[in-house]
Amino acid sequence: MNLNIVTRDPEETQKLGKRISKLVVPGDLFAFYGELGAGKTCFIQGVCQGLGVRDYVTSPSFTIINEYKGRVPVYHFDLFRLNSLEEFLDLGYEEYFYGEGLTVIEWAEKVESLLPFGHLKISIEFFNYSQRIIYFATSSDRYKVFLKELIQSENIRD
C-alpha cells in the first residue's frame, strides 16, 4: 500500500510527523529514505513533538543513536556514516528494533536486510526548494491500517 503527500514547507512536514505520532504504539518502526537535506530529521522532529519529547531532537550522525523520552520512548538512528551491515550489527540494535519504543531510522537503506517485516517506509524527495514529496509504503497489515487512519484524518490528499 502506498500514499503520497506533498508538503510545502518544513512546518507542514513537521505537522505531518506530529499527526502520525498520534497513531504510534510501542514497537513501531519507521524507516526513512532521502538524500541529505530532504527533511528526514525535520519529519522526525515533528513525530517527537507529537510524542511529547522535550529534549532537542538533533541529528544523531555523530552518536548514531539518540534516545528521547516521550509518550513512548524514541530511538532515533542516523546511519549516514555507516557503510556496511557488519558495522551495524554490534550496536545492540535488536534491543531497539524489537523493543518497547518507537524506532526511527535515517538512511534505512543501509540496513535494509535487518529491518523487521513490520515497518513503515517513509521516503522524502525534493520537489523544489521548499516542497517535498513524501511517500509512504508498507506491506504489513499494521501499517496499512495506520495509513488508512492517516488518510481519514483531516486534510490529507491521497
Binding site: 541529505l36 530529521t41 538533533t58 541529528s59 550522525s61
Partner: peptide, 18 residues
C-alpha cells in the same frame, strides 16, 4: 545555547561528502 539540528562540523563533513 546549542544546535537544534546539525552540528557545525557535521555540516562541513556532509557538504564535503556531497
Amino acid at each position: 545555547g546549542q544546535t537544534r539540528d546539525d552540528a557545525a562540523g557535521e555540516v562541513f563533513d556532509k557538504i564535503s561528502k556531497v
